[in-house]
């Protein structure tokens, strides 16, 4: 759970690089015209990359849970 990264759908990515430009945490990089999430980076799950992506190639899913009352 430490290396939490957005999910990248390489089939949808056009390599426009907008997600890389917008990310302030330096998690995303372009490798061979394709966006890649760098391991060890600190993604703050701000979801801006998901918002900016024109093709829906990058996403930040939220787990939906009910509070444990114990």
């Amino acid at each position: 759970m430490n290396a939490l990264m957005p999910l990248i759908d390489s089939a949808k990515c056009q390599g426009c690089g907008l997600c890389v430009e917008i990310c302030t945490c330096g998690v995303l990089t372009m490798v061979d015209g394709m966006v890649t999430a760098r391991n060890g980076g600190k993604c703050g799950w701000c979801t801006m990359c998901e918002l900016v992506c024109p093709t829906g190639a990058i996403s930040c899913p939220f787990e939906i849970v009910i509070e444990d009352i114990d």
Binding site: E50, S59, F62
Partner: peptide, 26 residues
């Protein structure tokens, strides 16, 4: 989704998916 999650053990949703389901902008 939370009910599903209890039944199946973990459900995930992106804000984009929530937007499509709720019929609104992201």
């Amino acid at each position: 989704y939370v009910d599903h999650a209890v039944a199946t053990g973990g459900m995930k949703l992106t804000q984009q998916e929530m937007a499509s389901m709720a019929g609104t902008a992201r």
